[in-house]
Simulated assay, not measured.
Amino acid sequence: MKYSLSMTDQQQAEIKAHVLPADGKEAVAIALCGRRAGATSHRLLVNKIIPVPYEACSIREANRVSWSTDLLIPLLGEASRRRMAIVKIHGHPQNYPWHSEVDDESDRELFPSIYGWMEDDNPHASAIMLPNEQIIGRIVSPEGMFESLNVVKVVGEDLKFYYANTDLQNVPEFAKRTAQTFGEETFAKLKRLKVGIVGCSGTGSWVIEQLGRYGVGTLDLLQKSLRKI
């Protein structure tokens, strides 16, 4: 199963403003998310963001935050009624790009209680935000096990994708020209794309060939069939 989290650029900015404040100390926000569950993927889509007030935190330091989970109670009721996901997001102002041992301990204490409120085992998640706005997330199971979100997507005037796995395979021979021309980072983005093409003859066939040569990861082809009536 692949997991992803999607939000708008305005929501990303709202989260950053709260969880990475000017005082350089950690802070927390909660996102209520809708779901799109498929056979092979589960998408979480941010619906609204609820900042945890700074004054509700018993500890706020540069590498640690502790807060009263009583604030979650009304949100859990709404999430249960609407079958939504809870995503906890906190900042890492020191730019530490992984969940810390303190984060692991906190998530293992919090999320079993969240699942206990729900009438199903649909996934909930925990995420961190870095000063460069990158978001790194993971699913936390009812048993306190962790599984990385495959990608966090931010939609606005530009599209941003934050992938869990940046260790890509070597560039294949047929795509080396693309990597040399546009850079390996661009090739990495192309490799992760999934592109749908409607119409595979004429212009479509040339587009398919070029996208393949550029190294696009997945091509979904749909040939329109014509029937004489």
Rank of each mutant, 00 (worst) to 15 (best):
S4E: 07
S6N: 09
M7A: 07
D9A: 06
Q12R: 15
A13M: 09
E14C: 09
I15L: 15
A17E: 08
H18Y: 11
H18F: 12
L20I: 03
P21L: 10
G24M: 05
K25D: 03
V28E: 14
A29P: 01
L32A: 01
L32T: 02
R35N: 04
R36V: 07
R36L: 09
H42N: 05
R43P: 00
I50H: 12
I50E: 06
P51C: 06
Y54R: 15
E55T: 06
S66C: 05
W67M: 06
I73R: 15
L75W: 08
G77R: 14
R81L: 08
R82Y: 02
R82T: 01
R82I: 01
M84G: 00
A85G: 06
H90Y: 12
H90Q: 06
P93N: 03
P93K: 09
N95V: 11
N95E: 10
Y96R: 11
Y96I: 07
P97T: 02
R108P: 00
G116H: 12
M118C: 05
E119V: 03
A125F: 06
P131R: 11
I136A: 03
I136P: 00
R138F: 02
V140E: 04
M145R: 15
L149I: 07
N150Q: 13
V154T: 12
V154Q: 11
V155G: 00
G156E: 10
L159S: 10
K160L: 15
F161H: 13
Y163M: 05
Y163S: 01
D167I: 12
N170P: 07
V171H: 10
E173W: 12
A175N: 12
R177P: 01
T181V: 02
E184L: 10
F187A: 05
K189Y: 11
G196D: 03
I197H: 11
V198H: 12
C200W: 06
V216D: 01
V216R: 09
D220S: 10
L226P: 00
I229S: 07
